[in-house]
């Protein structure tokens, strides 16, 4: 498979002021690549929720976007506390968010669930005390 585009973004944990900056840039890149609106929106939501998760919970992280002829792939890797019970964390409404996160309108317990809903393929792995890794794939030509 040819990787037609690839770029990695650094996200700093706890930097709430810039939350969403990487996502908005990624959305612009995808639009410039003339990817369909529906795919751009799904990718943008998945990246935005991922970015907010890094800022809210991890020390730092990286979001790598790579676009191929048939899919938009997003790889999210953070250094942080990790997730103890992934199944529970995936449940809509479950959240460990702090008051600061909730004041921004997040921490509703919809993040990982939203990412999964936007993805055609979604994989999550986590090591407690080390960090979390998400692998997201959104097909470019429908499902």
């Amino acid at each position: 498979m040819n990787r037609s585009y690839e770029k990695t973004f650094s996200v700093e944990g706890g930097n709430f002021d810039n939350a969403g900056m990487a996502s908005i840039e990624i959305k612009k890149i995808l639009k410039d690549l003339q990817i369909s609106d529906d795919v751009v929106r799904k990718a943008a939501i998945a990246v935005y929720e991922s970015e907010l998760n890094i800022i809210s919970y991890a020390r730092n992280g990286h979001i790598t976007l790579y676009v191929t002829d048939d899919a938009v792939n997003v790889d999210v890797r953070d250094e942080g506390p990790g997730i103890e019970d992934i199944e529970l964390a995936m449940k809509p409404g479950y959240s460990t968010a702090t008051e600061q996160i909730r004041q921004m309108g997040f921490g509703a317990g919809m993040g990982l669930y939203n990412i999964k809903t936007c993805s055609d393929r979604f994989e999550i792995s986590s090591t407690v005390g080390e960090g979390t890794h998400l692998s997201i794939k959104i097909n470019r030509n429908g499902q």
């Binding site: 002021d17 908005i24 943008a44 004041q103 921004m104 309108g105």
Partner: peptide, 21 residues
């Protein structure tokens, strides 16, 4: 997409969320 977002929240996250969508 194309919807109105009605909210009582005034942080910049509202704007970024609206932009993403």
């Amino acid at each position: 997409a194309g919807s109105l977002i009605l909210t009582g929240l005034t942080t910049s996250q509202v704007v970024r969320t609206a932009s993403i969508l």
